[in-house]
Design a binder for these strands. Structure first.
Length: 580
RNA sequence: GGGCCCAUGGCCUAGUCUGGAUAUGGCGACGGCCUCCUAAGCCGUAGGUCGGGGGUUCGAAUCCCCCUGGGCCCGCCA
């Protein structure tokens, strides 16, 4: 098992520190950690040392919790291993079997039977997963792709990351609402409209795929003036143009929405740029920006230097010479709108928006008391280079999803050929879309990714199906069991049982750390580690064949595992399946 | 040219924020395991100058500086 540093009860990032009015929410591991920390603090105080004691989860083979003595060496003028030894002499922490000094560490060993019973009980009654409401609202804006065609995997990380960040935050007690910002006033939208007018479209299937052809053709050569004219008319609210644009973009958006829904991505609200521009927020945005802006030939710009942003580019223009607003200004307005809905505004943005993100953050935080937090990801590239809708060098998300589900169906058929076809397809859908999500989530946001079919469709090893498979195994055991279950280990806890119990106990610290760091890959990694631990347990500890009271107890472990995995699946948007 | 991001075995990747006890897993390769709760699984073997060079430190994949390679940005586009 891996060790999770998590968040200690004393780290500055801790929500108890930030929101002191909330009741402390502690799982079993946090309770023991706190006891260990308090006991160490007690001893250190008696030695005249007053520090923030931070006990960590130990790595395997070194007990369960650990305290590093190295940082104390200077203050105590003693060697770390000697400090550890002296500490052990005086420590009397409650609930631990033993405490020992190894090297410069103090290692705490939990009472395994008692801890196991605690974890199982709290997993079964679900208090293990409960976080009290924080009274903080978060708006997560993600995807926000120009509605000119289908989503492609180049930006495919955006919806999956954004949706998972929203789910993580909900899981730890935030009120979360997700937004999709619809860029209807941009040039791209106008080019699409120009293409539609010029070439028309043939309705055949999903609208996003239908319209993208007109968009691509338009890009081969459009009339600059006519596009500008369209843009101007739309911005002025010309009735006929507005109606046409809204119809077309809504249809494309409908297609995009279907794609999102198919991979369990939920968008609570679509906010149209044109609505923002015509709202009170636009006026307020210009007021805010007016205080920062300078004039160049009639156009307004904000100098980045003034905002404390280091960049070669020295200014960001917010209006044209003719007075019409530019994207940065409109986005400030949109963020002012969001600031009414949330205390923290998270924007999931491609790496090309880094400067823009810094600009918005500086301006909006200067004008309101909300926190703006851009989360960046790097594009998924093709082996031959960047994806581009215009050039047609793309893999559409829809095609990836379809391929994944088809491949999953083949795999299920191989193993469960006798299964009812509807059930089989349902399992294939769950496996396929989960695989797509997982393969994106398992890699850190800012790592560059190259799209390769064989990796995107990976169904074994570090993959969703691997993790789902353990859930199916657990389900299979429970299907074949009838009777009582017991959370009390009847005898010594088996090492594989222990590893699994500890993995479950990490739920709180892992999920909380992932949420606070906006790092979905930590939860994907955790799902994998849980599955590893379950597979070891499955290998070493027969459940249904176990004799005596061990059976009811191991069934409790399996039940707790399933419940924990359901929570984890829910956070990363992976589907559970009882058979596969 | 400047700014930001990335660099870990053949390939992909964790750990980097918050420096410490044997650098995490997976894919691929090789060798094993289905009369036994689902083999999308399990066990074992081989494979590592943590991009390079300096520095800080008792201790560096982790912090600082320089360099190299790749990505992104540098528009009165969005």
């Amino acid at each position: 098992m891996r060790r999770y540093s998590g968040i200690s009860s004393h780290s500055p990032g801790d929500n108890i520190f930030k929101f002191p009015y909330l009741p402390p929410s502690m799982g079993p591991l946090e309770r023991y950690r706190k006891r260990a920390e308090e006991d160490i603090a007690r001893v250190l105080r008696s030695w005249g040392v007053e520090i923030d004691v931070c006990v960590e989860e130990a790595r395997p083979g070194f007990g369960d919790l650990t305290f590093r003595c190295f940082p104390l060496a200077r203050a105590l003028r003693d060697r770390p291993d000697s400090i550890a030894y002296r500490l052990c002499e005086e420590l009397r922490p409650e609930g631990f079997e033993r405490v020992e000094a190894v090297g410069g560490y103090v290692n705490f060993h939990l009472n395994r039977r008692a801890f196991t019973a605690d974890v199982l009980r709290e997993a079964l009654n679900e208090t293990l997963f409960y976080f009290p409401p924080r009274g903080r609202r978060v708006v997560v804006e993600h995807t926000s792709a120009n509605p000119t065609g289908p989503l492609h995997v180049g930006r495919g990380r955006n919806p999956i990351l954004g949706d998972t960040i929203a789910r993580m935050l909900r899981a730890v007690g935030y009120d979360v609402v997700t937004h999709y910002y619809v860029n209807d006033m941009g040039k791209q939208a106008a080019v699409l409209m120009w293409g539609v007018e010029r070439y028309g479209v043939e309705a055949s299937g999903k609208w996003d795929h239908v319209y993208v052809e007109a968009y691509q053709r338009a890009y081969e050569g459009y009339d600059e003036d006519e596009v500008a004219e369209l843009l101007r008319k739309y911005e002025e609210g010309d009735e006929e143009v507005s109606r046409k644009v809204k119809t077309v973009l809504s249809r494309v958006l409908e297609g995009i929405g279907e794609t999102l829904a198919s991979i369990n991505v939920r968008v609570d609200r679509y906010v149209w740029e044109s609505d923002v521009v015509r709202s009170e927020y636009m006026r307020r945005a210009m007021e805010v920006l007016g205080k920062l802006a300078e004039v160049d030939n009639g156009a307004l710009y904000v100098s980045l230097d003034k905002l404390g942003i280091r960049s070669e580019k020295d200014r960001i223009y917010i209006t044209r010479s003719d007075g019409t607003t530019l994207y940065p200004a409109r986005d400030v307005a949109y963020h002012l709108m969001k600031s009414d809905e949330g205390d923290v505004l998270i924007d999931v943005l491609g790496e090309d928006h880094k400067l823009h993100g810094a600009f918005i953050k500086a301006v909006v935080e200067g004008a309101t008391d909300v926190i703006v937090e851009p989360v960046f990801y790097s594009f998924v590239r093709l082996p031959e280079g960047r994806m581009s809708t215009r050039r047609g060098a793309v893999v559409y998300l829809d095609d990836l999803i379809e391929e994944a589900v088809e491949r999953a169906a083949e795999e299920v058929r191989k193993r469960r050929g006798d299964m009812d076809p509807d059930e089989l397809m349902e399992i294939a859908r769950k496996v396929g879309i989960s695989a797509v999500r997982y393969n994106v989530l398992k890699v850190q946001n800012e790592k560059p990714m190259v799209f390769r079919w064989e990796e995107a469709l990976n169904f074994e090893g570090d993959s969703a199906p691997y993790v789902q498979y353990t859930y199916a195994r657990a389900s299979s055991i429970l299907r074949n069991y009838e009777g009582e279950i017991s959370t009390e280990p009847p005898s010594e806890v088996h090492p594989s049982e222990w590893a699994l119990v500890k993995a479950m106990a990490s739920y709180r610290s892992v999920v909380e750390a992932a949420a606070e760091k906006r790092s979905p890959h930590l939860v994907a990694r955790y799902a994998r580690d849980m599955a590893d631990a379950f597979n070891a347990f499955y290998r070493d500890c027969p459940v249904l064949q176990a004799g005596g009271p061990a059976r009811a107890y191991r069934v409790a472990i399996v039940t707790a595992y399933r419940k924990t995995m359901e929570r984890i699946f829910d956070i990363i948007g992976v589907e559970k399946t009882e058979k596969m």
